[in-house]
């Protein structure tokens, strides 16, 4: 399987994109809609013309048409051929390449088995569920043993439960087959779960490339930070285990209780939406509860973002509009912040 390199790619919104993807890696292209993610996939697949260069294993493939690049492409809307049954859909590429009949049958059976859809072989796409269609489309994309697999928001049309299940399976499959894979999504949780590395794309520009934790804990600029939910990043001075599966991390004046997985904690990411704001002192033990003063109030799309000073830290917290209206919050007012224990991310 090849490594992929994009050199100075320009097309539509994409401007001077430089990107390197290692052999067997699963790279997630993360970014909002219209950021140019699908355009980049189409460029790598050879489905559109472009300026710049695409290299597979240091070989330029710019002159190769899509049919010769050896790329498996799973489109967002799948586009299973409606007039062909499942077997024929999977066999399509093999037949197009004029492979021997026996070999085709064997390969189709193998893929049906691999994707656990042998019982669907003779069904037509109109009689398949969303998840089943997904598996067929993936089998079809894998049939030619592609060197590179491109997945364009492959799970966006599925219900959460099916998507979660398929995600795990997809990741395992990718590691098993060792295909260099680029996975496009705008979903943060999906990116974090799938990625070896994440490339954050905004307005056609590569903003940041790194492991998921690097993106979450060291966002390179405000644009990336905002896109991933503007997490509050706290540096931990030291941490100690309290036994019973919890630990205490000291971040300046804030002592935060966290689940203890045995690893030391250097950084903590708290997402504004995961911080409760209360006007009165909350009841219960004084764990992960902090007193602070509001320093700014800014309306957002679906809520209101408060900046609260806690000791030397300035934390962002989000309050939904309807709750904000019921509260009497103003700059300079003292409030209490409650951190949701299970939502704290650590590095």
């Amino acid at each position: 399987m090849p490594s992929i390199k994009l050199e100075n790619i320009c097309k539509y919104i994409c401007r001077n994109v430089e990107l390197e993807i290692s052999d067997r890696e699963l790279l997630v292209l993360l970014g909002p809609s219209g950021a140019g993610k699908t355009t980049l996939l189409n460029i790598i697949a050879g489905l559109t013309d472009y300026d710049g260069s695409v290299l597979f294993d240091s070989q330029r493939v710019d002159k190769l048409p899509a049919s010769k690049r050896g790329v498996g492409y799973l489109f967002q809307d799948l586009f299973l051929f409606p007039h062909l049954d499942v077997s024929a859909n999977i066999a399509y590429g093999l037949k197009a390449r004029k492979q021997p009949h026996d070999g085709i049958q064997e390969r189709v059976a193998e893929l049906l088995h691999l994707m656990k859809i042998s019982h669907l072989a003779e069904r037509y796409p109109k009689n398949l569920s969303g998840g089943e269609k997904q598996r067929v489309a993936l089998a079809r994309a894998l049939a030619l043993s592609p060197r590179v697999l491109l997945l364009d928001e492959p799970l966006s049309s599925l219900d959460t439960q099916t998507a979660k299940y398929l995600r795990t399976e997809l990741k395992q499959l990718q590691k098993k087959l060792g295909i260099t894979t680029i996975y496009v999504t705008h979903d943060l949780a999906e990116a974090e779960e799938m990625a070896d590395r994440i490339a954050v794309i905004q307005d056609g520009q590569l903003q940041q490339l790194g492991k998921p934790e690097e993106v979450f804990f060291y966002p390179v600029n405000e644009a990336v930070s905002d896109f991933i939910g503007a997490p509050n990043i706290l540096h931990c001075d030291h941490c100690q285990s309290l036994g019973q599966g919890v630990m205490e991390a000291s971040c300046g004046a804030m002592n935060i209780i966290l689940p203890d997985d045995g690893n030391p904690v250097r950084r903590i990411a708290l997402f504004p939406r995961d911080i409760y704001v209360s006007e009165t002192k909350p009841p219960g033990p004084e764990v992960n509860r902090f007193k602070g003063v509001i320093t700014s109030i800014k309306p957002l799309g679906d809520g209101v973002r408060l900046e609260v000073r806690v000791g030397e830290h300035k934390l962002l917290a989000e309050v939904p509009h309807h709750i904000f209206e019921d509260m009497d919050l103003s700059v300079g007012k003292e409030v209490f912040l409650i951190l949701k224990l299970r939502r704290i991310k650590v590095y």
Binding site: A66, V71, G72, F75, F79, Y92, G93, A96, R97, L144
Partner: peptide
């Protein structure tokens, strides 16, 4: 015919 079917077929190596 939706052009995306043609694109799919193209990535699958069809002439």
């Amino acid at each position: 015919v939706d052009k995306d079917y043609i694109r799919v077929a193209r990535t699958l190596g069809a002439s």
